[in-house]
Design a binder for these strands. Structure first.
Lengths: 153, 153
DNA sequence: CATAATTATTCATTCTAATGAATAATTATG
DNA sequence: CATAATTATTCATTAGAATGAATAATTATG
């Protein structure tokens, strides 16, 4: 009954509160909180959270940098979000308007922001619409097509 | 390669453009657009979209009312969204603050708005925080607990 | 009214993301 | 440096949402 995002949020909290030296220690701390997870899942979670290992007092501990240096999400993750939530992509000049179901624009915008695409210089999300600004080296048309491809439209 | 939300968006468009009299006609129109779906899926989609059947010129056609009278989402759908995205719930007086992963607040707020709960009179969503206002007949504490239960926290 | 047509629902199946056991790869330690 | 410890990855499995075939239920029609 614990989703991956809930577990990752809990991991963030545990790492902020304690010195965690290795994955098995984290697996145990999660279990104390009633969350079952294997070393494999923890490894993946830490990777997705952008956790780093710091030297502290002679040993190393995990920490999540305060500056949000989460790894750029893989293109497959962006494709998944677009495939689920982007229902339309139109352009005008260097602007692209993506349409989503109501309430879903921010999830998509957040995924775009976290991807390492250099074709987009920014996004503005409303309720069901995202304004995407294409970078100078590309065009609104190309970016709209890119998102249509990602969304499977 | 077509998600349910994309298919439902397409259905909305088809119903706005044409007179669709029954499910099998819609199944065919979807197929023309390259989207395979069975009568069963179409039945569910129309239900979720709140489609109604209007009498027009001697026969009946499907339409989606302009006023967003989508069916209230089932409690299980709200539970699913909360289980996936709500990572914290705290209260103060009649206010409840729900925490989500970055960019996910609106999805949750939208689900809450679309549920038929009478315990919440409104929501305000940011990036990773939702302010939920408890109704007068209940309390912030009870509403926070309700969301913790829904989220499996 | 009988029944054909349509719609909703059940139940088995499919799909896909996530998970974990096992193991390969990497790092830390004595 | 050897090797124990730790971490990352592979591959099989699981979980849960969605789907579709079949059928029950409902509605429309002559």
């Amino acid at each position: 009954m614990t989703s991956k995002s809930q577990r990752q949020h809990l991991i963030e909290r545990l790492l902020a509160e304690r010195s965690v030296g290795d994955h098995s220690e984290l697996v145990e701390l999660l279990a104390v909180e009633g969350v079952e997870a294997s070393q494999a899942s923890v490894s993946r979670d830490l990777d997705e959270l952008g956790a780093v290992k710091l030297r502290a007092g002679g040993h190393t501990v995990y920490a999540i940098p305060e500056i949000a240096t989460q790894r750029a999400i893989p293109i497959e993750a962006l494709r998944r979000v677009c495939g689920d939530w982007v229902v339309g992509a139109e352009h005008s000049d260097n602007l692209v308007v993506l349409t989503t179901p109501p309430g879903s624009a921010h999830v998509v915008a957040s995924a775009i922001d976290r991807s390492d695409t250099t074709d987009v210089i920014g996004t503005v999300a409303g309720d069901d619409t995202i304004l995407v600004i294409a970078a100078r080296h590309t065009s609104g048309e190309a970016v709209a097509k890119h998102f249509r491809d990602l969304a499977g439209l």
